[in-house]
Design a protein around this nucleic acid. Structure first.
Lengths: 151, 151
DNA sequence: TCTAAGACCTCAAGCAACTTGAGATGCAAG
DNA sequence: CTTGCATCTCAAGTTGCTTGAGGTCTTAGA
């Protein structure tokens, strides 16, 4: 038996990272900022985790994937304590976030259109070799509303 | 006559900021990192600009609005020197960027769907008051593919 | 002519959310 | 016993600025 004291099936930070889908320094960082509790340490000083850590960290990773900030994530995590009404509070946070996501989507859509027009114009005007008359770059230097060439 | 030496119609950083649509510290920052040239100084030490600065800074601002990184912007700016083929090189940078914009859009679309499902589920399950049986927060702690409630 | 507001100056630190690096230690296999 | 990987801590770097402190310059009003 070489296991740590009282460690049924605990594992170390590298395993946790692999199982929860994040990096080792990220886990240490989350601990440092108090997003996850301080890990128990074995005699070697290495952090020891169990399955509940995978769940928590997975939860956090999904929140982050959803684009919640760390502080939003912290709020949602602290809600997940079984209190009634916690669900509604989480919903409000999500709804707020949904609004910004939708705004960001509209911006990106706009951006996508502008960029693809730029690329198309460049291609059709200059594809056959150096086009000394191409004014695209010069046009970019003008007010966008007045740019005749593209974008 | 109170004008600076050799200043026909030069103006200061605050005016430039207003006319180019960015903040004063941003201009100083751009100068510091060499994205724009070091401004001429009047006897007082204040920076002096002319119209060409508005053009350059406006160009940069539009690149940044388009989501180009500073380094991409720097590359595009350095292309805008009238060389032939510069246009095609700018196009390649834009095309590269367009690809990442499209990827980001798809991610956001996914995110939007997940979030709105979460919000809807919370609302319909819990809207009539505390719903002790709501499992949404608990579900979030499960693997996403197995989440029965929402998200 | 004085004065007070506001614009400007520099330098330094702060922000998110990590990542990267240095230098030391632990641990398991050959 | 050594080698090589995982871990540890602490510090600094990343991006693209923003904010703050503390000081100078300019300008309009009294």
């Amino acid at each position: 038996m070489r296991t740590e004291p009282s460690a049924g099936n605990s594992f170390r930070i590298g395993d946790l990272a692999r199982r929860a889908g994040c990096s080792v320094p990220t886990i240490r960082y989350y601990e440092e900022i108090g997003l996850i509790p301080r890990a128990a340490r074995g005699s070697s000083g290495h952090r020891a985790y169990d399955n509940s850590a995978i769940e928590l960290l997975g939860f956090i990773r999904r929140c982050r994937d959803f684009g919640f900030t760390i502080e939003q994530t912290r709020a949602i995590v602290s809600l997940a304590d079984g209190r009634s009404r916690a669900c509604l509070e989480a919903r409000d946070i999500a709804q707020e976030h949904l609004k910004t996501v939708r705004e960001k989507m509209l911006e990106l859509l706009d951006l996508e259109r502008s960029l693809s027009r730029f690329v198309d114009a460049c291609t059709s005007l200059c594809a056959d070799g150096p086009a000394p008359k191409c004014t695209i770059l010069r046009d970019l230097g003008l007010k966008r509303s007045r740019a005749g060439c593209c974008v």
